[in-house]
């Protein structure tokens, strides 16, 4: 798999995406999580870029640029702006599943992804295709973060993992979705994050805190 420079670079980039996903489960401070999201965005963009260069596909390179800009720069910037940094409250203090257990769970999720998608990987057959389970694993870990983290920022990071995992699978399986579609998806995510950030900021100004468990009291 690591025979050619192309394969080595691709594996490195894809691996980084997965490592970033696991890191999201690990870190607890706001600043780090935003940084991890940014790194993952860049890694995803690089995956697309490497594939685009390898296949000499201008559309894919264009899409990679958009991904780099949106997921590597715009979204992290928005997240950073919205969350406000440095306060004690902004740490993920008590996730539903604690960090060590989350890391163990992520191992199981990765194994599951590889077990479930080994046939798909074999079917696609290319170097990129062999890495498809990594995308699925990223998706599962993102979902896990979404379901077990209390703070909106961390849940949003989870949502972005799910999206990045899906995009990764799409890139690896089909050597890139059409340029317009990819741009549309990225901008959708940007829009979603913007809306969520605005909501979070409004909540913060109204109630001073955005812990979901405490917000539940409003419902009750």
């Amino acid at each position: 798999m690591t025979g050619s420079p192309y394969a080595a670079a691709l594996t490195l980039a894809v691996g980084s995406v997965l490592v970033c996903a696991i890191t999201v489960l690990w870190v607890t401070s706001t600043r780090s999580v935003i940084r991890v999201v940014a790194i993952q965005g860049v890694a995803l963009g690089l995956v697309a870029m490497i594939l685009g260069i390898h296949l000499r596909d201008a559309g894919l390179i264009g899409a990679a640029t958009v991904v780099l800009l949106v997921k590597g720069a715009a979204i992290p910037l928005l997240l950073g702006k919205a969350s406000g940094t440095g306060t004690v409250h902004s740490r993920e203090s008590r996730p539903i599943v604690n960090v060590p257990a989350s890391l163990v769970a992520s191992v199981f999720l990765i194994v599951l992804a590889f077990a479930a998608f080994r046939d798909v990987a074999r079917f696609v057959g290319t170097t990129a295709g062999a890495l498809v389970p990594v995308g699925v694993a990223t998706l599962l870990i993102g979902f896990f973060a979404l379901a077990t983290r209390q703070r909106p920022l961390f849940q949003m990071a989870g949502l972005l993992m799910v999206d990045n995992g899906t995009a990764l699978v799409a890139f690896l399986c089909t050597a890139g979705v059409p340029f317009l579609v990819e741009v549309g998806v990225s901008l959708d995510v940007l829009l979603g994050v913007t809306v969520l950030m605005v909501l979070t900021m409004r909540l913060r100004t109204e109630f001073g805190d955005v812990d979901l468990d405490e917000l539940r009291e409003l419902h009750d």
Binding site: L112, F143, L146, A147, T148
Partner: peptide, 12 residues
């Protein structure tokens, strides 16, 4: 969280 967990468990 419970609803999201339902989704995750179903997917798994």
């Amino acid at each position: 969280h419970r609803y999201l967990a339902f989704g995750l468990v179903a997917l798994i």
